[in-house]
Design a protein around this nucleic acid. Structure first.
Lengths: 143, 143
DNA sequence: GCCTGTTCTTGAATGATTCAAGTGACTGCG
DNA sequence: CGCAGTCACTTGAATCATTCAAGAACAGGC
């Protein structure tokens, strides 16, 4: 878990001004994996009581743009953010409770990045979402 | 392109009542590939002038539940629907204009369906989204 | 320490989607 | 063929994540 100094360093390296909301949000994303915006607002306010939700939205957008956090948004769910960036990993999403877990790619470093027919698109990323049920929901559904 | 009779047949086979809004929406989804809800409402009204948007939402949900259409929703975009179901195909999405094209899976029939570590989830589907730029946007961005 | 431009606060708006209540129509049965 | 019951559609309003807008506050460079 990075320290406050490290967060400041990360921000500076990304050419972002160092502000208290930004450090608080960056820390929140690191501490809560796959958290939605509301949870991040809550966690950020634990450190900095009066951050506005708007500030958190702005910060998340800036951090996402700078590549410090990654935004994930499975179909029909609200946006979530994670701090693990730069590697090529994907997600399993539980259909019933929405839980998310990380999955490393099975097929090499850039899986399936070569589509069979790309229709002339220039592809720069392949995103994989595995849909299923988490252990808890599986147990609850089939007792 | 299926006929009206075929649409009725498809609905009956799925244990859905045959109604004019349902046939109109089913036809709209078949004619407009990857259309969003608003486009589908427009297309349905071309056949059946006074369908309510609520009816279209209900119908799309029923059709999706019955497996007659498939709902796709790339991050940060509105829901879109397609009539190609049952095969294992994926999508390329243009980052700048949102255009979507179909992509057959490069790696066999159920690509990457085996995650390296599934965290105990029981996975039933792997969804792949390729992100990039469509030919038109590539040309516009790099003249 | 001051200036400039970015970032945060406050408050309201947007818009896809959903909820709710009532009317209407499809299907199966008599 | 006609009726009943149930499901589907209409109308109208509500929800809620996210965004927009205007002004105040702050970070970073001189």
């Amino acid at each position: 878990m990075p320290t406050t100094d490290e967060y400041e360093r990360m921000l500076r390296d990304a050419d972002l001004r160092v502000t208290r909301p930004r450090v608080a949000v960056l820390d929140a994303v690191h501490r809560l994996p796959h958290a939605d915006t509301e949870s991040i607002i809550g966690a950020a306010r634990a450190e900095l009581a009066d951050v506005s939700h708007q500030a958190v939205y702005d910060v998340l957008r800036a951090l996402t743009g700078a590549g410090l956090v990654r935004r994930i948004q499975p179909s029909g769910a609200v946006a979530r953010y994670e701090s693990r960036v730069g590697d090529n990993h994907h997600h399993v999403v539980c259909r019933s409770c929405g839980a998310i877990a990380d999955v490393d790619c099975a097929v090499g470093h850039t899986p399936c990045l070569t589509a069979s027919d790309d229709h002339g698109f220039s592809i720069d990323e392949a995103e994989v979402v595995y849909w299923g049920r988490c252990p808890a929901c599986s147990a609850a559904a089939a007792p």
